[in-house]
Amino acid sequence: MAYLERILGEHPFFAGLDDEHGRLLAGCARNRRFAAGEYLFREGEAADEFYLIRHGQVALETLVPGRAPLVIATLGEGEIVGASWLLPPYRWMFDARAVTLTRAIGLDAACLRGKCEVDHHLGYDMMKRFLPVVVKRLHDTRLQVLDVYGDD
């Protein structure tokens, strides 16, 4: 089994992936490494890659005029970075900065979208993996918005 195919299958996001799909996805994958402080992507850029974090920590940030960047969320080992690659106009909505040295698998978005379109079984499998993550983040964001710890 090819190296990329193996580490792809070891990532929690792809737990239980069948071999056929693993081979297809590995064709879109590459290894990525981001030094601390380096950006995976910036707001407004083309969302052309989807990341599976293997090691390290990534902060999703946004700029507020007159203030230091605000961190919306941090993502770590075993998590995924990026949703905007899935939907037009394929532009990032936030900055993603490596807080520490971060190793990831990058999946080429156009390649991935193309394979999902051709093989709907693959596409459906991807959706079943992707949607729970998105929904969980939506719930977390709602809880964050509630500001449950009160005024400071």
Binding site: Q57, A59, E61, R67, A68, P69, L70, V71, I72, A73, T74, G76, R97, V99, T100, D140, Q144
Partner: peptide, 9 residues
């Protein structure tokens, strides 16, 4: 803020 090296979430 971005100066926080810990987790946000």
């Amino acid at each position: 803020g971005a100066d926080w090296a810990g987790r946000v979430g």
